[in-house]
Design a protein around this nucleic acid. Structure first.
Length: 222
DNA sequence: AATATCGGCGC
DNA sequence: GCGCCGATATT
């Protein structure tokens, strides 16, 4: 068989590193029919959607994934590349950005990997409703830096102007741009059901060791 | 033995 | 008709 490069293309609907291959049957009764295969980043070959689903588990929701075409099947798929990480949750009727599903580390591996987490020390935790407090999920510090370089746009693909940072608000943390802080605040307002108060630790503490003194539940600002 | 390819069952 | 996977061919 052909040892040169196979016709294997990157699959946009799956994590980076996954490949898709389509081979046409050239003989037999089913000549002309095609078979579709996928290759995981570690090289394992998959030849059916059930087989694929068993390996990726809950990491990716494949209900809207069409195995044959390799694309997300929905009535109106956005063609913009900027939106390719955004999937639609048909159960809840809400959009989900992969970068906002925080506790899952984003790697090329098909296996879910544990994320090293920092638990908030009780002393510097923001006071919150006890009922909601039990349901809180841990976050990575400065996770919103992953939002850098992403922009909102309207249906005509025109970029929306980001709003300016209000006076009296300063960002805390390494290389955090004003725009990134805006994104962080917007995400906090969207995701949190408790007051957004910013950081409460002293400035010098935060500068010295953000890993210890930062409150990951609050945006990196004060 | 491992992999590529086609057959064909079952939904 | 087609997805899926067993059966068979190929290396």
């Amino acid at each position: 068989m052909d040892k040169s490069k196979k016709m294997v293309e990157d699959c946009s609907a799956l994590p980076t590193g996954w490949k898709r291959e389509e081979v046409i049957r050239k003989s037999g009764l089913s000549a002309g029919k095609s078979d579709v295969y996928y290759y995981s980043p570690c090289g394992k070959k998959f030849r059916s959607k059930p087989q694929l689903a068993r390996f990726i588990g809950d990491a990716v929701d494949l209900t809207s994934f069409d195995f044959r075409t390799g694309k997300l099947l929905s009535s109106g798929v956005r063609k913009s590349k900027r939106l390719k990480n955004i999937h639609y949750d048909y159960n809840k009727g809400t959009r989900h950005d992969a970068s906002l599903v925080l506790p899952i580390r984003q790697t090329a591996s098909i296996f879910k990997q544990p994320v090293t987490l920092r638990t908030n020390h009780g002393a510097n935790r923001i006071k919150a409703d006890p009922k909601q407090d039990t349901k809180e999920t841990p976050k990575q510090l400065f996770w919103e830096k992953r939002l850098n370089g992403l922009y909102a746009c309207d249906i005509t693909d025109d970029m929306l102007q980001s709003i300016d940072l209000p006076d009296g608000l300063s960002s805390i943390g390494p290389n955090l741009t004003d725009e990134n802080l805006i994104q962080s605040l917007a995400a906090a307002l969207h995701l949190c059901n408790y007051p957004i108060a910013g950081q409460t630790g002293s400035q010098s503490q935060l500068e010295r060791n953000a890993g210890v003194y930062m409150n990951a539940d609050q945006p990196p600002c004060m």
